[in-house]
Write a protein that binds this DNA or RNA. Sequence first.
DNA 1: TTTGTAAACTAACAACTGTTAGTCTATGTT
DNA 2: AACATAGACTAACAGTTGTTAGTTTACAAA
Lengths: 189, 189
Amino acid sequence: MKLETRKEEIIKTATILFKEKGYSAVTMRDIAKAMGIKAASLYNHINSKQDILTNIIISLAEEFTNGMKTVLLSNVSNIEKLELIVALHVNITATNTHGMASLNNDWMHLEEQLEYYLELRGSYENNFRNILQEGVQNNEIINSNLEIMLFSMLSTLRSLYLWIPKKEDLNTEELTKNLSHILINGINK
Amino acid sequence: MKLETRKEEIIKTATILFKEKGYSAVTMRDIAKAMGIKAASLYNHINSKQDILTNIIISLAEEFTNGMKTVLLSNVSNIEKLELIVALHVNITATNTHGMASLNNDWMHLEEQLEYYLELRGSYENNFRNILQEGVQNNEIINSNLEIMLFSMLSTLRSLYLWIPKKEDLNTEELTKNLSHILINGINK
DNA sequence: TTTGTAAACTAACAACTGTTAGTCTATGTT
DNA sequence: AACATAGACTAACAGTTGTTAGTTTACAAA
């Protein structure tokens, strides 16, 4: 197994820049400059700018897909499954804060892999929805508008990347616990 | 008072395109083509591409600032103030769904007005935080991590633009009611 | 009919874009 | 000592970018 350290360095650098300005506003010369080399040199390691974006987004999307698979296989209540999903988002976001920005904001600039991405995202949302629905049927969850509950939780979880880096002394377990409690039980006393 | 219908048309067209691809990926030729004219003609009505973005973002940011002012002046409980804030977001987003995308994702491409925007956003968040804090002190709101509560609510409200257009038969009052309930009381039965 | 003006047009600019081709250099292996 | 390779470099490309200058057109006011 070959170590692709230089390629990974490029992707890591690009990921940070993509978060700051978005994919379209970052040029290959920006990425090169941040690494102290010339733009043309990047092409010894990567095939195209597109490739960098695809690499960032698809690997994250697959992480979520795999995580969801594990959640679905777990033999726990639906409320507990939601807690596992919160943990999944916190953990992935904590280890790839910058990449989450591209996943959220730059997915539309994927080309060949756009369809695949939309497929992954669609089935992730379906699985999430099904957990909520089962929870409603089992009297674990209130019988409110399913789409609003789904949207509300998912929005918060998808925005974690905007907020996590601000807390340097991050305790992911505690964040998961607190966030789960707020999402599930609200803030009302 | 002069009617600037053509300028408004340009801004409206740009707003839709900015939502689809982001500010940086949209060219003046894209905007012109969508209107059936040439790019150079746009400059009879607007000063620059930057100007379009500034117009979209600052007017929305000021709408939120003004709305928050009204909320703060209202003589109601802190929980009820939160409900007013939910209504504020639902109403602004429902009438300017596309612009909310730029507000959320393209603010970093503001130039002269960036500082002003950050100021507005900062004080909006502070006001929001203070309402939560007073709610905790008055025993209206659970004594959980303030930043997590703030982040959770704000993330959901800021993401409304992604979700609102999907419901064509939108009843803003009902959405406000349901969403408030979920954000405040959670989904637990 | 003449004139003024709003708003479109064509043509062009300088800078910037992603990318390719071909070359040089350092390092480590035979 | 000879060679192979990784990874940098320079130079250049064709296309795209925001924007400007100057011109034409349509229409309403005088």
